[in-house]
C-alpha cells in the first residue's frame, strides 16, 4: 500500500510529467488558453493514460517478453496507444459532441502526445508490476490535468496584464511554466529517493 501511495504522490506532485519530464508540452502550450478546454483535455488524457498503462503492461509482459520480441517494443506501444486514442475519440464524439468540438485537433494528437508513450517507457524502465502500473498511469494523468488546469487559470489572467511586446505569445507562456516549475520544486522534499 505504501509504495502505491508513493507512486501516486510522486507522479502528481514531485515528478510531475509536464514540469519535470517535459512530457505533453504540446497540449500544455496549445490547449491551456481556456479553462474548460483544459479540464476536458485533462480528463481525456487521464483516461487514455490509465488504459494505456494497463494494456501496454499486458502486451509487454505477456507477449513481447515471453516471445522475445523486444525489438518491436516501440512499434507495438505506439500502435496500442493510437488505437486507444481512436476509441476514446469515437466515444467522446458520441456522448459529448460539444467537448469533441472544442478539443478539435488536439484529440487525435493525444496519440503523438509524448506523455502517453513516456508513461509506458517509464513503466518498463522502472519495472512496475500490474497494479503499480495502473496507479502510475492514473496518477500521472491527474498530475498532467492539475498542471494544465493551473496553467489555464494563469493564462486567463495573463490576458489582462501588461506584457512587454516581444515576450507576448509563446515566450511568456514558457516563462510562466518555468516559474510554475520552480514552485513545484518545493514539493521535492516530500519523497526522499
Amino acid at each position: 500500500m505504501r509504495d502505491l501511495f508513493l507512486i501516486f504522490l510522486s507522479a502528481v506532485l514531485v515528478n510531475n510529467f509536464v514540469l519535470t519530464y517535459f512530457l505533453g508540452i504540446c497540449p500544455f502550450l496549445g490547449v491551456s488558453s481556456s479553462y474548460e478546454q483544459a479540464v476536458g483535455m485533462g480528463l481525456a488524457v487521464t483516461f487514455v493514460m490509465s488504459l494505456a498503462s494497463s494494456i501496454c503492461w499486458i502486451f509487454y509482459h505477456l507477449i513481447l517478453v515471453k516471445f522475445g520480441l523486444l525489438i518491436l517494443e516501440y512499434v507495438v506501444f505506439i500502435l496500442v496507444i493510437a488505437s486507444l486514442v481512436q476509441i476514446v475519440e469515437m466515444f467522446i464524439r458520441k456522448y459529448s459532441p460539444s467537448l469533441y468540438q472544442s478539443l478539435g485537433i488536439y484529440l487525435p494528437l493525444i496519440t503523438t502526445n509524448c506523455a502517453i508513450l513516456g508513461l509506458v517507457l517509464f513503466m518498463v524502465i522502472r519495472d512496475y508490476n500490474f497494479i503499480q502500473s495502473v496507479v502510475f498511469g492514473f496518477s500521472s494523468g491527474l498530475g498532467f490535468s492539475l498542471v494544465l488546469v493551473m496553467m489555464a487559470g494563469i493564462r486567463e489572467e495573463l490576458k489582462f496584464s501588461d506584457i512587454p511586446q516581444i515576450l507576448k505569445g509563446a515566450s511568456i507562456t514558457l516563462i510562466t511554466a518555468g516559474i510554475l516549475a520552480l514552485a513545484f520544486m518545493g514539493f521535492s522534499g516530500l519523497i526522499s529517493s
Binding site: 514540469l19 519535470t20 519530464y21 517535459f22 512587454p164 516581444i166 515576450l167 507576448k168 505569445g169 509563446a170 515566450s171 511568456i172 507562456t173 514558457l174 516563462i175 510562466t176 511554466a177 518555468g178 516559474i179 516549475a181 520552480l182 520544486m185
Partner: peptide
C-alpha cells in the same frame, strides 16, 4: 544551478523565443 534543472529549461527557452522575436522585429 537552477538552469540545469527543469525550471531553467522553460525560463531559458522562454527568453530565447523573446530574443528571436526581437531580432525578427
Amino acid at each position: 544551478v537552477v538552469m540545469v534543472l527543469p525550471a531553467g529549461a522553460f525560463l531559458v527557452l522562454g527568453f530565447l523565443v523573446g530574443v528571436i522575436n526581437y531580432i525578427e522585429r
